[in-house]
Design a protein around this nucleic acid. Structure first.
Lengths: 236, 236
DNA sequence: GGCTGCCTTACCGATTCATTACAAATCCCA
DNA sequence: TGGGATTTGTAATGAATCGGTAAGGCAGCC
């Protein structure tokens, strides 16, 4: 789908231009939004004004040491940190971990592995937050279950694509309230979607069609000039 | 565990003093009650006299091996275990340990990550409602026994490798709910796996093939764009 | 050396995506 | 009330993405 979620932002802090360039290239082609700086001071400034999701941080920096940068970053936020170091002493490794680096690569490293590490760190971040709630929306004839990823109308399962499902979920979760196209775009397509908002109309249309194939209650209303609204037919 | 409000007790078994210290510090500041030992024998004694809620266990211990400690712990109790291993530990042992541990991390690991994992394991325990007693999953045509490490479809045993078994177990244990590739990676391959998530597809494919050689009910559904879901054919 | 199991890679077909263009509906004001 | 302007519905389309799977490299083990 291009991008359902915003591109994770990554800040690369590395003084050696050649390495910096490689890291940037690989990360960008892996779909990340990358910013580079070559010293610790700029890193801190930038991290404050525009917090990244993860920092790739060289340990050996001119001026402010990588360790200190890490410590400072951690003071003010909980960014994830991937440390880069020269082939190194045990002492460094331990100290690096104590300061809370989330992973660690020794130079020379394979760029692909570096990307893999970055992805793994971000992946974990997403996973751990999962305390279970009831992820189910229930209406008169419609039940939407996020965990099963299943929507059922009048006992019949709907065959929805991911995007269609998300559109339906977004609307149903705000049942009774109007959602503008922009709100739907943000909720479903993510805040960094630069496409045409007519895509919302197309998907609403598709969801409507599939809903009506199974049940004739029109559950998604068009609010002209504004957006769409889900209404539970039994209610109202 | 009794009281949810009581600090969970954690036993750390690690021979390297520096790592032990870091682990202890981080866990304590996360609000756990921590005890440390540096060898397997003490670990077992202590675990018997004062059973912890979770054990953080190094795989490479002098004297009694971490694997053996895990096995002994499991014999007498249901403690949760978080394994620590060195990177590049032989694939085989790592595969084996997945069966005994609830999660594992490869060194060098991020202390924050470690704490997050510990919390996740304990939370999972609460969510499921306590004991991990049922080491057997039963469905219409499929029975999976974790202790015997055996899966039987329509009376016929399945010849699964360790990884295949784990994948099937993970899916079946969440029967009806979708698991993303990331979730499967974490549950089966551990939280520090830096590979490609397509490996999930490959293994799901293999399990499917073996299942269908014995029974024609398709039990693993693909949820395009999300992941996979186990469905009991008799149900639903 | 042959076996087995793990993980990666690459290819291909099928599905899904976002855009576009045009038709239909609605609005608004003369 | 009519007609032009605006908004929405939707079919069609090429491009992008996704998932199945065969093949192969690698490592440990007998």
């Amino acid at each position: 789908m291009g991008n359902m979620m915003a591109k994770p932002k990554i800040l690369v802090v590395e003084d050696e231009a050649s390495i910096r360039k490689i890291v940037q290239t690989y990360l960008e082609s892996a779909g990340f939004s990358v910013t580079c700086v070559d010293n610790g001071r700029d890193a801190l400034t930038l991290a404050l004004s525009n917090p990244p999701d993860l920092v790739v941080l060289d340990l050996n920096l001119p001026g402010m040491d990588g360790m200190e940068v890490a410590a400072r970053l951690r003071e003010s936020s909980d960014v994830y940190i991937l440390m880069l170091t020269a082939r190194g002493e045990e002492a460094d490794r331990v100290a690096g971990l104590r300061l809370g680096a989330d992973d660690y690569l020794t130079k020379p490293f394979s760029p692909r592995e570096m990307v893999a590490r970055v992805e793994a760190i971000l992946r974990r971040q997403r996973d751990v937050g999962g305390s279970r709630q009831d992820h189910t929306l229930r209406f008169a004839h419609l039940v939407i279950d996020l965990d099963r990823h299943e929507a059922v109308v009048a006992e019949r399962p709907l065959d929805l694509t991911v995007t269609e499902f998300q559109v339906l979920w977004a609307l149903a979760a705000s049942a009774g309230r109007v959602l503008t196209r922009d709100q739907l775009l943000t909720q479903v397509w993510g805040s960094s979607f630069y496409g045409n908002d007519r895509v919302v109309d197309v998907y609403v249309g598709q969801v409507r069609r599939k809903l009506q194939e199974q049940s004739d209650a029109p559950m998604i209303e068009t609010i002209r000039g504004i957006g769409y609204k889900f209404v539970d037919p039994k209610q109202t």
